[in-house]
Computed example of a mutant assay.
Amino acid sequence: MPTISILNGEEVEYVEVYDEPIHKCQFSNEYAYCYIATINPGESCMWHRHSQDSFYVALASCEAINRPTDKPEGELNLKAGDKWWSLYKAKDMVHQVCLPGTCAAPAKFFGVEVLKSPPVYSESPLGGNAYTLLDQFTIDRARIYDMTLQPGQSTGMHTWNFFATVLCLSDGELSTEGADSPFAFLGLRTYGQYKWVEGPVTFSVKNEGSAAYTAVVVEWVRH
């Protein structure tokens, strides 16, 4: 197992994120590697290395401790639904994350690495009143959208001409049309559900419930 020197001079062993047991792989292909990390109160993950640009969403609020090797440890004060990028492609990182035993509930993170450039991609951002392009999270490898459907609202028939990862951020009562709809077969209706989508796919989805439905769409772009 490789070792690395941390800030206090101690040598620690580390693994690749793919081998860290708390980071549980959800799906993997040549374009994406997706995992969910759940850390219980009083628990720490192993020291591990990230080397690919990664998009994250906090699935639970937490006050965790981040321990990088090259700087002092710091608090991660996160709310459920918080989003961020860690751009490890330019500079990899070895770190450890700990959750104090005083925390009332586990920390839970959704992460997806953006790997290979996709064979299907869109030159322009997705339109439609259900989608909001989040410019602050959009990089050269991916566009990030907030997808929101108010009660009774429908996207209408439209096409995703791209590859994407979709993460459901609320429970929802949905109906959908389109043979290849990402929302078919009761998919993406429960908080924390996710799906890898290989476009082009043409579909509509309607919120049949009494509360707003939200999801985040990560669109792979040519890079």
Results as ranks from 00 to 15, higher is better:
H48F: 07
K91Y: 07
P106C: 07
V197G: 00
R141K: 15
A212Q: 00
G199E: 11
V114H: 02
E208Q: 14
R189Q: 15
C25R: 14
D171P: 01
P100W: 11
S124L: 08
L134V: 11
T3C: 06
Q26P: 00
R67C: 10
G9A: 09
V57Y: 02
L76Y: 09
R49F: 08
V205K: 05
S122P: 07
E20F: 03
G209D: 08
V114S: 00
E219F: 03
F183P: 04
I39V: 14
H223M: 10
T138V: 04
W196I: 14
F183N: 10
I65L: 15
C62M: 14
T148Y: 06
G156E: 11
P100I: 01
Y33K: 07
Y121G: 02
P100G: 09
K89H: 13
G9I: 01
E43N: 01
D19S: 13
M157Y: 10
P151M: 12
A60F: 04
E11V: 06
E75D: 11
Y131K: 00
V112H: 09
E219D: 12
T132E: 12
K89I: 04
G101Y: 14
P151N: 09
Q193R: 03
L169A: 00
Y213S: 05
L7C: 12
D70Y: 13
S44F: 10
T69W: 10
I139R: 02
P119L: 13
T138K: 08
L87P: 04
T190L: 08
K89C: 05
N66K: 02
P106Y: 09
P151Y: 01
D70L: 07
V217H: 07
L126F: 04
L99W: 07
L78H: 09
K206Q: 14
M46G: 11
C98P: 02
V217F: 01
A130P: 07
T202R: 11
M157K: 11
T176K: 12
V197F: 02
H23G: 07
D180K: 14
M46P: 05
K116V: 05
Y33P: 08
Q153L: 11
E113I: 01
D135V: 04
C98F: 15
I144S: 03
T202L: 10
Q193T: 09
M147Q: 08
T102M: 13
Y145P: 00
Q136F: 09
D135L: 05
A212F: 07
A179S: 15
L188W: 02
P151I: 05
S61H: 06
K206L: 07
A64W: 04
S44W: 13
A130W: 03
Y35G: 08
K79L: 02
